[in-house]
Design a protein around this nucleic acid. Sequence first.
DNA 1: AACATCTGACAACGCTTGTTATCAGATTCC
DNA 2: GGAATCTGATAACAAGCGTTGTCAGATGTT
Lengths: 208, 208
Amino acid sequence: MAAAEMRTYGGVSGADRKAERRAQLIEAGLDLLGGAEGDQLTVRRVCQRAGLTARYFYESFAGRDELVAAVHEHVVQTVAAAALSAVEAAGPESDAKIRAGLEHLVRAVAGDPRHGRVLFSVTLTDPLLARRRLESSTFFARLLSGKAREVYGIADSPELDLAAQFVVGGLAQTLTAWLSGTLTMTEEELVAECAKIFIAIADREGPG
Amino acid sequence: MAAAEMRTYGGVSGADRKAERRAQLIEAGLDLLGGAEGDQLTVRRVCQRAGLTARYFYESFAGRDELVAAVHEHVVQTVAAAALSAVEAAGPESDAKIRAGLEHLVRAVAGDPRHGRVLFSVTLTDPLLARRRLESSTFFARLLSGKAREVYGIADSPELDLAAQFVVGGLAQTLTAWLSGTLTMTEEELVAECAKIFIAIADREGPG
DNA sequence: AACATCTGACAACGCTTGTTATCAGATTCC
DNA sequence: GGAATCTGATAACAAGCGTTGTCAGATGTT
């Protein structure tokens, strides 16, 4: 219970040990939260998978929900950062930006399917995760509509909000289906098709 | 436990009593499954809300999951039937069919928000419901791509599958946001905007 | 060496869940 | 009237959950 000091152990400092345990717990939590649907994230299970005991769980997290939130936040930041920086780095044409963003989004999601499942998979049924996912959806939607206003030079409007929500939901469903094998196409085809739809919606939204 | 006979009671036949209790349970289940997110569907709760006791639950359902499935099936059939018949009844032009289908879909969902939530709301976290929802999504997607092939006279393809999944996911997200008040527009505006996006995707898909 | 802290395994508490059983009293059939 | 059945309430069981506490032994400090 020492709030202040932790002496070194096994050659590593107290803070390092605690940080490593926390990282192990988040990794195990990502395994469970983004793994097979049956694997619920329980304290006992996540500790077993991390090779730790319950005591060390409560050393880093106030409760189960705090770990779920931490895992989700970690994934959102990782994926959003990858996609956003790609958009910034792309050429000034809107199509190039759309394609670059989609490409990196798909890559992040396909590279570690746990990320995709945590973000999108409908079969993940943690209540807190669901609420956070709803929030992150509108977060992504706002990000998207902001970029759209910036790139297309259009004003904010309810119609734009709707289009952004539609795109986010459509992408989520599409990526979920693709990850589950329902859609059979290569990563490149997936990106190309999504970009086409994306542009079709944007072009409708711009002039219309 | 009488498997065969149930005599009349309170003026109604045994079969009628049993059917009415089953209906009460499904209605209560719809209340819980499509209600506030905190309201989990448990056997005790659904029985309390139906004004029955656990014994009558297992009289009509083998277990909790069977009720969940029955409620979901009921909603899917109701909504799909409403939208499909509207599409059939509409004029032969594709735009008219799209608008009619969307209109009735939105009406079914707005008229009884429980329906919309059971079908779409991401914050509903029943595991079985999630799996069934995934299946019903591809069911709706197939329905949609079938109609598209019929109306637009195009062939089946992976790209069409993707577009159908995208549209289903986009609609789900949009309707969820609208039901939750995130999108502020009238029912007519909602239908009109969704139809525009729909048509934009279809026109992209049709000519290729 | 002597003492303080860290570690890991495990028991335990209170709670909710699905499911089944029990039992007194109301209603219907013969 | 008497027997069979339906009703409704409630208790019970085993299982899993989050969370907290206990305790022997390993590893550090002085």
